[in-house]
Nucleic acid binder design. Structure first.
Length: 260
DNA sequence: ATGACCTGTTTAACAGGA
């Protein structure tokens, strides 16, 4: 089973690229972030025609997450449990039955947190605290679990072209990295680190300043796996080529293959 | 090079992103 995550930066602007990539990559499950659309305007029928079931948690203008799945949803949860007061659409979770049992998948758009001297940074850290609590609860099920999405966290200095430029950034501050590693330390495994684990493999390149041409990227999109999912992990890959397409998202897909 | 973008929205400048 192939499970992918991609911050598409606007469903309306990205629909042709998304359709092309779905046909090329053919994931069983695709977690999407930054759809920037209300749920009612998400073009579910396009994906249904391609054989996907569609779950959407959108809002006007900003944020918004979705999950496409070839297998039907047993359950869909909109919003991060425990953080019901959050008005931003950043979390969607689904349970999907496979031939070998259920798998739980979340599409996560973690807050950016910049600028760090505004309420946006404490909002990010608070959101991560809620995610940690929820992840801790989910791990108790001892089932295959994939927490996939745009974490807006650069985990280490190897995951950025020039760490010195990011020292005061919400994506790379010690507190941000510590909050991310605290979630991992609950017992989750980063699929990238368990497989590719190389320096300077990026998932985002800014639209500005020729970042793509200079390979000035950062690795901020992650798939975190429970032990039961990690046991079935056999491959991880970044679809870097989509960044070179016309009208690209600033993020590219990253995906895993599980033996289920 | 100090420069350099993209998306959505009350369609004209903003807000927000990373």
């Amino acid at each position: 089973m192939k499970i992918a995550t991609w911050n598409i930066n606007g469903i309306k602007a990205r629909l042709p690229n998304l359709e092309k990539w779905l046909r090329d990559a053919n994931p069983d499950i695709a977690c999407l972030q930054e759809i920037k659309s209300v749920s009612e305007n998400f073009p579910s029928e396009v994906f249904e025609a391609m054989g996907y079931n569609v779950a959407v948690h959108g809002q006007k203008s900003f944020n918004g997450v979705a999950i496409l799945s070839k297998l039907p949803f047993d359950e869909v949860i909109k919003g991060l449990p425990g953080n019901e007061a959050d008005e931003q659409a950043r979390y969607l979770e689904a349970v999907i039955s496979t031939e070998t049992g259920a798998i739980r998948v979340a599409s996560i758009y973690l807050p950016n947190g910049n600028p760090i001297d505004t309420p946006k940074y404490p909002y990010k850290l608070e959101w991560m605290e809620y995610l940690k609590k929820h992840a801790s609860n989910l791990l108790k099920y001892e089932e295959p679990l994939v927490l996939a999405g745009d974490y807006n966290i650069i985990p280490t200095e190897k995951d950025v072209y020039d760490a010195s430029k990011w020292l005061d950034d919400a994506l790379y501050l010690p507190q941000s990295k510590a909050a991310y590693h605290a979630i991992l330390n609950l017992g989750l495994t980063s699929a990238f680190e368990a497989t590719i684990n190389k320096a300077h493999k990026y998932t985002f390149w800014d639209y500005q300043a020729g970042a793509w041409n200079k390979d000035n990227g950062i690795r901020i999109d992650h798939l975190l796996l429970s032990p039961q999912a990690t046991d079935k992990l056999n491959h991880c890959e970044i679809d870097r080529y989509t960044r070179g397409w016309e009208k690209p998202s600033d993020h590219v897909p990253i995906w895993i293959e599980l033996d289920v």
